[in-house]
């Protein structure tokens, strides 16, 4: 009897372990499937022309041209938005850590951030669009940047708030004990210790911004030209993929796959880059 029970629990352990391994492989396999699909479909259609030219006449019928407008547009949109988000998020994260720490106010701010973070980007897009309509703005680079920035602020603040807690308390205590004010401690001690985290958070938000389509759909518009000012409409890569995929011409759909590959490469490069930079920088940090 004892022997049998001993065996049974080991068998059930093995079965459950098998299913766990299976699920694990399923998750890993789906990533490989996505990357493989994008690579195998996109690579044949990728050309220098794609990344170096704007769409010429009849581009969406299969004539020549490229998607430089969307690449530049996406970089400008996500870059501008990330800059604005950084200017707002960093002080919030510093304030939460330095001044209010564990007070009720800090809890409310964090809860709000969590809630904002969960709001779908299409809702940000719809909100941004109403706001722009009431201000008399047209779909433009500026509109897209602002809405993307709103989307990125909670992502960035939360990511920074995570790393800021890893800064050893002793360091700021030491700084305060030497007579530095809280502001000086925040700006001269905490911020340096946070550097890898700030960079990771910024790149994370940039990656989310550049890949988001629903929020720029109405606010940034779409055009075949490279934007010349903040008020000109701006193309973006996700929308370029979506629109090209929607045409009935196989040549244009091929280019959608190539565009998807470009977007994936940018996002992967940003993601890997943030890992490398933060690994490199964290060597210089007091742990």
């Amino acid at each position: 009897m004892k022997h049998w029970r001993f065996k049974r629990r080991h068998i059930s352990e093995a079965i459950v372990k098998f299913f766990m391994l299976l699920s694990f492989l399923l998750v890993a396999a789906s990533l490989i499937s996505i990357l493989w699909t994008i690579l195998s479909k996109g690579l044949p259609a990728l050309s220098w022309e794609m990344v170096s030219q704007t769409p010429k006449g009849g581009y969406y019928l299969g004539k020549e041209g490229g998607i430089l407008n969307a690449i530049v547009g996406s970089l400008l949109l996500a870059g501008g938005a990330t800059l604005i988000a950084l200017v707002i998020s960093l002080p919030i994260a510093l304030f939460l850590e330095t001044y209010v720490m564990k007070t009720r106010w800090a809890r409310y701010v964090r809860l709000t951030m969590d809630i904002l973070w969960g709001i779908p980007s299409i809702v940000y897009g719809a909100f941004g669009f109403t706001l722009m309509l009431s201000l008399g703005m047209r779909a433009s680079l500026l509109g897209g940047i602002i809405v993307l920035a709103l989307l990125e602020i909670p992502i960035m603040t939360r990511a920074m708030d995570e790393v800021i807690r890893l800064v050893p308390e002793e360091l700021s205590h030491a700084s305060l004990a030497l007579g530095a004010s809280k502001l000086e401690t925040a700006l001269k001690v905490t911020i340096r210790q946070m550097m890898p985290g700030i960079i990771t958070a910024t790149l994370l938000a940039f990656g989310r911004g550049i890949g988001d389509a629903a929020s720029v759909l109405f606010t940034a518009g779409y055009t075949d030209r490279i934007p010349t000012s903040l008020s000109s409409p701006t193309a973006s890569l996700p929308l370029a993929i979506y629109f090209q995929l929607g045409t009935p011409y196989p040549e244009v759909q091929q280019r959608a796959y190539a565009s998807a590959l470009i977007l994936t490469l940018i996002v992967l490069a940003v993601s890997l880059g943030s890992r490398l930079i933060s690994a490199r920088l964290s060597k210089y940090i007091n742990k």
């Binding site: 890949g211 988001d212 389509a213 993929i241 959608a256 977007l263 994936t264």
Partner: peptide, 13 residues
Amino acid sequence: LLAAIPSVIYGVW
């Protein structure tokens, strides 16, 4: 990486 891939890429896939 899975979390970083844009939703439009999931759509293409």
